[in-house]
Design a protein around this nucleic acid. Structure first.
Length: 306
DNA sequence: TAGCAGGAAAATC
DNA sequence: GATTTTCCTGCT
């Protein structure tokens, strides 16, 4: 297998470490100065040196264009960050994690990964994802050692439930397999989602997933993650427990007293109706790049909470 | 709509 | 070493 080495000259703000350690993606592993990951079907290692991004990929297909697209380096981050700096809270988060970018990841990988994220923390999510990749992903070689691609929907649809459970998925195993079967059966069409507006894309995603009235394990939060991290809907605003607590703490005026009270409880839980209410509130507040605000606030909340 | 279960691992005490 | 929490969803 041939490998490809190249260096990107970074034009705008970019911080590789923040970007890969922000809970958007679960397969990147840091070894020394390099980050090792899998983009599409090829291995890739990247390292940032100031204004440069050094890359080495195990596949001809993973070239400058592919890396630029993956990290969205052709988009100007500066005006986006300026547009979300609506208050001191988010402005401080932007300053602290300056250069964090949203990644354009594969839709199927994104959906499957966040489906596994329920009731789990990030280290555990990484373990589960890694386990199904090793068990079901196609193997290739890079730098003399094997790496696994993310499993195809077909390979997971045909998996034995007990084998998935053995990967540490627990009750998530049946959710994942059923979603995989839906993809294989053509009940879910990802290709049109980026072209639609946020509202329509979300409705279509949830309808296609839920239309068959089977237990699928994909609700509004997972849908928002898919729309934001893999469909280019930058106005999507996934609300997880960290963000919910942050909103209750610092954005009470936006939510109203009753929601603040509910979110301030021990478990910051939102029903579907409240989720949409909070979601539309923050989306109109932060604007068309609300998803970036979410990602910066998430990082800030996680740092201060830990 | 509010309450609860779900499996297992990490974080916390 | 026990308890609590964990980037949530579906059922009752």
């Amino acid at each position: 297998m041939s490998s490809l080495e190249f260096t990107l000259e970074l034009e705008g703000p970019f911080n590789l470490n923040f970007t890969l350690d922000s809970g958007q993606v679960f397969r990147w592993e840091r070894r020394g100065e390099w980050w090792y990951g899998v983009v599409r079907d090829g291995a890739l290692k990247v390292m940032q040196e100031g204004e440069r991004l050094r890359c080495s990929s195990g596949s001809e297909a993973i070239d400058i264009a592919a890396v630029t697209r993956y990290f969205r380096l052709d988009e100007d981050l500066q005006p986006i960050l300026a547009s979300i700096a609506k208050d001191e809270k988010v402005t401080k988060a932007v300053e602290r994690f300056y250069g964090l970018r949203l990644i354009r990841q594969d839709v199927w990988e994104c959906l499957a990964s966040f489906l596994l994220a329920t009731n789990a923390n990030i280290p555990r999510i990484k373990k589960m994802v890694s386990a199904i990749c090793e068990r079901y992903g196609e193997k290739s070689e890079y730098e003399g050692s094997a790496f696994s691609r993310f499993p195809t929907a077909a390979s997971l649809a045909g998996a034995r439930l007990e084998d998935l459970v053995r990967c540490g998925l627990g009750y998530r195993a049946s959710f994942l397999r059923r979603v995989a079967q839906s993809v294989v059966d053509g009940r879910i069409d990802f290709s049109q989602l980026p072209r639609m507006g946020y509202e329509e894309a979300k409705r279509v995603l949830l309808t296609e997933l839920l239309g068959e009235k089977v237990l699928l394990g994909v609700g509004p939060k997972v849908a928002d993650c898919v729309l934001l991290f893999s469909c280019g809907h930058d106005d999507a605003f996934p609300i997880d427990v960290w963000i919910a607590r942050e909103l209750a703490k610092s954005y009470g005026g936006l939510l109203g007293p009753s929601l603040v009270k509910r979110l301030s409880g021990e478990t910051a839980k939102l029903g579907p109706r409240d989720y949409e209410k909070v979601s539309s509130g923050v989306r109109s507040y932060f604007g068309q790049y609300a998803g970036y605000a979410q990602q910066y606030l998430f990082m800030a909340a996680r740092e201060s909470g830990a």
